[in-house]
């Protein structure tokens, strides 16, 4: 159970490991505020879709499961879209096109298809939460790098003195690609280092 909850954070992190749902990661990570908004929306859609699919998993005929999943996901995405437009119009404006595009975010269909359609409700909800948080965490991490370096702020708070000249490139599109590429490289490097380390240890024994 705990494993299901936590594996989305690092071991099978949807963004860095599974490379799923990269479009919104790149697009809305220019500020931490947007990243949190997007992450919340994805968590809501992921948990709700996992819950519903797991609830009716025995009633869905195998051959038409994909269209049914897509309809369920699209319904929850529209709900988020409408709620955000009504209660947080500023966030809705800055996320814009990328809210309806959660429908085609591979994380959601992927989790629903590989996990929720085969597992009990409680595990499916845990999986949704874990993966959702993993996604949000990666998004906030990337956004932090970009906002701090590109705008000199974090969540709108001034980090450096007024003399700091931000590298605007970081909050422009190229910055998104560069940040994610370097972070992914760093993660690979850590993995490599750890396996080499383990190897040395086991040999020493």
């Amino acid at each position: 159970m705990l494993n299901i909850l936590t594996r989305g954070l690092y071991k099978s992190n949807p963004v860095f490991r599974l490379m799923l749902g990269l479009c919104p990661v790149l697009a809305v990570s220019s500020s931490v505020h947007n990243a949190i908004g997007m992450g919340t929306a994805v968590i809501f859609v992921l948990v709700s879709s996992n819950f519903i699919v797991s609830l009716i998993r025995k009633m869905i005929p195998r051959r038409i499961r994909i269209p049914i999943f897509i309809m369920i996901i699209a319904t929850f995405v529209t709900i988020v879209d409408l709620l955000m437009a009504g209660f947080s119009p500023l966030l809705h404006k800055s996320l814009g096109l990328y809210i309806p595009l959660i429908v085609v975010n591979c994380i959601i269909l992927g989790r629903v298809e590989t996990f929720a359609s085969k597992n009990k409700i409680i595990f499916s909800v845990a999986d949704g939460l874990g993966m959702g948080f993993g996604f949000t965490l990666s998004l906030v991490l990337i956004a932090s790098f970009r906002e701090i370096l590109g705008n000199g702020t974090w969540l709108g708070m001034q980090i450096f003195g007024s003399k700091f000249k931000p590298a605007i490139l970081m909050i422009l599109p190229p910055g998104a690609f560069l940040t994610i590429g370097l972070l992914m490289g760093l993660l690979h490097w850590i993995d490599h280092y750890r396996t080499v380390h383990k190897h040395v240890h086991s040999k020493a024994r």
Binding site: I180, G181, M184, G185, H188, H192
Partner: peptide, 11 residues
């Protein structure tokens, strides 16, 4: 080695 595959593609 660490940059091979996806990371270098992103750069």
């Amino acid at each position: 080695r660490a940059m091979r595959g996806a990371p270098i593609a992103f750069i």
